[in-house]
Nucleic acid binder design. Structure first.
Length: 273
DNA sequence: CGTGCTGTTGCTAG
DNA sequence: ACTAGCAACAGCAC
């Protein structure tokens, strides 16, 4: 589920609750997600105090006063919720972080594509284990000129390109489809054929769409929820994603569904050239 | 019952 | 160096 706006929604909520809380217990109920859960290392953080919550790409970073950082990725179906300590864990509730105010940070992930690890950031707070991540889409570094320069001579479809985490992070399938629709760019267009002007338009549109989605709590399709169980409202704003066969809200043409890079892709054949 | 989707990432093979 | 394909998993719609 979670793309950048969903992760940012979770990070913002956690920022309200977690700082200054002390970890008083850790419960794990499964051995591994995408990678093994470092159970002993997590247990070692009992008594640590949470000093901050950050987001980088689609990763949540929970900084601890031990000098270590818990890195959490929600994969396709991961959720984090803050629940009272007496709430019983259900199937797929894999990790509980018990806090000193009686609340529990609970990680659930039916498909187990997520990631929970402990790392030690370097002096700048950077995390080597995350590798060389591309620029944040909402940063100044991600500009029309940046996209234009990177895209020259590239023959892959523009949609595949903007979803490539080595070019820009955080843009997943939903926001790629929606941004291309709003920028009136056909997802199949060869990246290298985009003009400077259209690169600028696409970058501006991606920023606007992500910002709008963050403002209303992200997108709930089936299993994304805020830490309090609330649903993201951006689902109501989707114009093409998941709407094959529906009529385009701009021109009435039937929305088409194709596959690009193995991912379902939705667009309006009339509006997007 | 199957079959074929699903918001991600990273490995493999070409 | 590049891209496409697939695997990891559970659930759900058909």
């Amino acid at each position: 589920m979670p793309e950048l706006p969903e992760v940012e929604t979770v990070a913002a909520a956690l920022r309200e609750h977690l700082p200054e809380r002390q970890i008083i217990g850790v419960v794990t109920r499964c051995e591994r997600l995408r990678r093994p859960i470092p159970i002993a290392a997590l247990q070692n953080e009992v008594n640590a105090v949470i000093c901050g919550v950050r987001r980088r790409a689609k990763y949540l970073l929970i900084d601890l006063d031990s000098g270590r950082t818990m890195v959490i990725h929600l994969g396709m179906s991961g959720t984090l919720r803050l629940v009272p300590e007496n709430e019983t864990a259900e199937r797929h509730d894999h990790i509980d972080i018990k806090l000193d105010d009686g609340s529990v940070l609970r990680y659930r992930d039916p498909r187990r594509f997520g990631l929970v690890i402990l790392v030690t950031p370097d002096a700048d707070g950077q995390i080597a284990e995350l590798g060389n991540l591309a620029p944040e889409p909402l940063s100044k570094e991600f500009s029309g000129e940046y996209l234009y320069n990177l895209s020259r001579k590239r023959t892959s479809p523009i949609k595949t390109f903007i979803m490539d985490q080595r070019r820009v992070v955080g843009v997943g399938n939903i926001y790629a489809c929606e941004s291309l629709f709003r920028a009136r760019i056909r997802p199949t267009l060869k990246t290298g054929t985009l003009s400077r002007k259209r690169c600028q338009l696409l970058v501006d549109t991606i920023k606007a769409v992500l910002t709008e989605a963050i403002a209303i709590g992200g997108t709930t399709i089936s299993d994304f929820y805020g830490v309090d169980g609330s649903e993201g409202k951006f689902a109501l704003k989707l114009k093409v994603y998941g709407r094959s066969g529906d009529i385009c809200p701009e021109c009435g043409t039937s929305i088409k569904k194709i596959t690009l890079g193995g991912r379902s892709t939705f667009y309006c054949p009339k509006c997007q050239k």
